[in-house]
């Protein structure tokens, strides 16, 4: 009976088109299974046993990725109720907290996830630094990681304005005034970021588009490169 079900599920054209190898019953098929799977191929086919120990990495990179994933899902759900308009934004945020079913938990998952991601990405960088993971041949991936960290901060900042409360307004006012102090390009850059001279509707929609579209796309692309390079650079760093 079980054999029959197994045959129906696994021995057909559809299953074989998705997984191009048989059941991973021996070492060769197991490595093939990992190699031909987009989601599993983060590690090279052959890996040092030590590298898989939790205490070697503390899982900080993957935790950062899981947080990004949670932020994408909760962010998409928040977008169904949030309208980036100066007269609606704060009200929508309060509706999410007090009127929408499970809105409060979604908003807070997004909020705490965002705070955590900044912390976890920073800790991940610390771990890579202290285990000398930035050295040859992983210099390029360290560079990609630094850009990802800056993107994380940019996402954090652009998201901070969206509730459109006093805290958000003054925080962004201060940040754009900091931009203004840059030599030569300061004034023009501030005008470009705010979309005018005051933090108003133009600034809100600019930050919103950056937060929900431009930066997440950039981060997704960079994460793909980052993960691909872990594999191509020979897995995790280890003592020489």
């Amino acid at each position: 009976m079980i054999e029959k079900v197994k045959n129906i599920v696994f021995q057909n054209r559809f299953w074989k088109s998705v997984f191009r190898h048989g059941m991973p019953v021996n070492a060769r098929l197991r490595s093939e299974a990992v190699m031909s799977n987009l989601f599993l191929h983060i590690h090279p086919v052959k890996i040092y046993k030590d590298s898989l120990l939790f205490r070697k990495t503390l899982g900080l990179g993957l935790i950062s990725f899981y947080l990004f994933f949670i932020l994408c899902i909760t962010g998409i759900l928040l977008m169904f109720y949030y309208i980036p308009h100066v007269q609606r934004a704060y009200q929508d945020m309060k509706d999410l907290e007090f009127a929408v079913s499970f809105g409060m938990i979604l908003r807070n998952m997004h909020r705490w996830g965002a705070h955590s991601m900044v912390a976890l990405v920073f800790l991940h960088m610390c771990r890579v630094f202290y285990t000398a993971g930035y050295r040859h041949p992983r210099e390029f991936n360290w560079g990609v990681g630094v850009i990802l960290f800056v993107c994380t901060l940019a996402l954090s900042l652009t998201g901070y304005l969206l509730p459109w409360d006093q805290l958000a307004f003054w925080a962004i006012t201060i940040v754009v005034n900091l931009i203004e102090t840059m030599p030569i390009i300061g004034d023009d850059l501030r005008y470009l970021v705010v979309g005018g001279t005051l933090v108003g509707q133009n600034a809100l929609i600019r930050f919103y588009v950056m937060h929900v579209m431009v930066l997440p796309l950039l981060v997704t692309m960079l994460i793909a490169v980052h993960f691909w390079r872990i594999r191509k650079d020979g897995g995790l760093a280890r003592p020489e």
């Binding site: 005008y191 470009l192 979309g195 005018g196 001279t197 005051l198 108003g200 509707q201 133009n202």
Partner: peptide, 10 residues
């Protein structure tokens, strides 16, 4: 395009 020409500010 990203630099606005008309502002609806006070």
């Amino acid at each position: 395009y990203m630099v606005p020409n008309i502002l609806y500010e006070p």
